[in-house]
Amino acid sequence: MNFKHILSVVKKDLRVESRGKETVNFMFLFTFISLLMFNFATDPFSPVLNDVAPGFLWFVFIFAGMLGLSRAFLKEKETGTLQGLSLAPISNDDILYAKIIYNLILMLGIQIIAFPLFIVLFNYNIAGSTLDAFLVLTIGNVGFVVVGSFMSALVMSARSRELVLQIIVLPLLLPVIILIIISLRKVMIDAIPLLSIGEIKLAASYVVIMAVLASLLFDYIMEE
């Protein structure tokens, strides 16, 4: 693990993204549209909204993240830069870490924009601390990005990759998705402080296990 190498790959990805801004724009627009869709689906003055809104918020990130994640390695494959990347004197693990960090930056950017948007659109009163709700979402997104980036590399050589990616990532993330929804509801409805929620610890440990497995197995994906 070499931080300089990781940083240079992240920088490269960010520079490519800042030129085209395709992924960011799509992700942001998609987040906006799906928030609106969920908003149309419910009566804004109904008391039920209070219960379902945390789930909506989290699903918006899952779907928007799916859109961005599928690009992480596929972009390299399509433009043929993957070979260059694997020829560079960087260990495979560092490439994976760099992709995870890059994806995380994208997700956090979307989160910073979408979270206030959600509060405005749904006219939502968070019972607990807003920072806690934000942190729960961040932990969920870390898990999502770790599994998603790894699986994005896994499906590179498959047919109809974007489709297969969703089928593989969502089942593996099911525990994280469920646990994050439970903790979000606890923070946003029952006003329980972050550190006394058991589910969030469980989700975090699951993410750690996934991260360890991913770094152990990544060499096998890149060998070709």
Binding site: L154, V155, S157, A158, R159, S160, R161, V164, I167, I168, P171, L172, Y206, I209, M210, L213, L217, Y220, I221, E223, E224
Partner: peptide, 28 residues
């Protein structure tokens, strides 16, 4: 997911390698 990944990869060696990685992951 494991079985659908197998149907989506054509090359036998690649398919075996990728699905083995997913098989280890899935044991969690």
């Amino acid at each position: 997911a494991y079985l659908s990944l197998r149907t989506a990869v054509d090359n036998i060696e690649t398919r075996a390698r990728l699905s083995a990685v997913l098989g280890i992951f899935g044991f969690v």
